[in-house]
Nucleic acid binder design. Structure first.
Lengths: 213, 213
DNA sequence: CAATAAATATAGGATTCCTATGTTTATTGC
DNA sequence: GCAATAAACATAGGAATCCTATATTTATTG
């Protein structure tokens, strides 16, 4: 090992850093949520549901949020009371429930004020650093996904429409078969509502090609 | 501008990524906190207090956590009841209160199990990426500090003991005058309990030298 | 010395969040 | 086919977070 007995290894300090930034961003989230009469957790659930034609069930929402199932039930009930989402019976499993955004729920997601701390903090980085940060976050998220620590996110790198380095153009090397257009590293999505999960084999191959490029 | 009218600018997507990772890390935090009979917020307050000989007052704790002052009062009261911290009168201001860790509070901070999701996620990055990520996070945090969005953190780059690029050795270019030792980019601290805040002018000069190096 | 400001505390209320457990419906194994 | 087990969700109970608004006490200012 490189630094034996270091009481503060780099993963520990990176976690500290992430934690500080997360605390700061909570302020943004409250502001944004309060504007539509919600709180950050509720708004996060609505964002999760946006674009999911098949909705999500309670367990999935809990997993995405990293909370227990009863906690998810609580927040879903609060949102249902506010008519921001609705529950429908799952086809073929009468124990289960599927949760969908209502038009009112979708409306809560519309306003995007800008002028946030996130924007400010990311804006203080140069373009290359921004791109590297995005890639690094994607890498970390993907790793957590593949080790089943978190559910699959709607990222390009797990999407069946994503073709990494399909073009010789270094500026826009990637291709999205959904919108049928080329795009660059800086444009990679973290939560795309057009995402369709590729099968594991295909995902692995895509990631391979993405890393190699 | 480079990508006009892009509905998902890179700062937005980076924030999404940070948010996903933060959700995942909450699970770690609960596990760690539960082991000592606390919750993540309470443990965060104790961590904040560690090594602060002058303690912190309620307002400062609220600012660090990104919550309102009454919320900080709540959590402080919960910790006080559990004898993890104590409040003492502020010298010279009888309105104010200073909060200090008790020996029991310090004990709660000791156990460090390892094997966390953070460790796993950061471990999936190569060394260079880890270092870049740490530097990028430090840069973002510093920017939020300097624009008064968050309180000054106990990072090397704002510490009066920190001498950036004081040594020709590319592996360990920095020097800490507190422990009187050289150290490398990978060893930069995010929350050092020996931190002493440098004055703004000096901080700016240090940052300048750090960036130039 | 009155007016204003600052640091906390209190009040009130919605919600989050946990664990433990109950209810209903699926699935499995014999 | 049917009991045993498992899975999905709801409920119960309780501690704590978290907000806004307001009160209290003490500092500071004009």
């Amino acid at each position: 090992m490189e630094t034996p007995k270091n009481p503060f290894p780099i993963d520990f300090r990176i976690r500290e850093g992430l934690s500080r930034i997360a605390m700061a961003l909570r302020v943004d989230e409250w502001k944004k949520a309060k504007d539509v009469g919600l709180n950050p957790t509720q708004l996060a659930i609505l964002a999760l549901l946006e674009g999911r034609k098949d909705g999500l069930n309670v367990k999935e929402i809990a997993a995405h949020l990293g909370v227990s199932q009863p906690t998810a039930t609580d927040s879903i009930a609060a949102l249902e009371k506010k008519q921001r989402l609705e529950k429908r019976a799952e086809q073929g499993d009468r124990r289960a429930v599927r949760v969908y955004l209502t038009p009112m729920g979708l409306a809560a997601l519309q306003p995007d004020t800008g002028d946030s701390l996130a924007e400010q903090a990311v804006g203080s980085l140069d373009k290359l650093e921004q791109q590297q940060l995005l890639l690094t976050l994607i890498k970390m998220i993907r790793h957590l996904q593949e080790s089943d620590a978190i559910p699959v996110q709607r990222m390009c790198v797990t999407c069946r429409y994503f073709a990494p380095f399909a073009h010789p153009d270094a500026g826009q090397p990637h291709h999205c078969h959904f919108v049928n257009a080329a795009f660059g590293q800086r444009e990679l999505r973290v939560d795309c509502r057009d995402h369709e999960e590729a099968d594991p084999t295909s995902r692995a191959a895509t990631w391979e090609a993405f890393q190699a490029g």
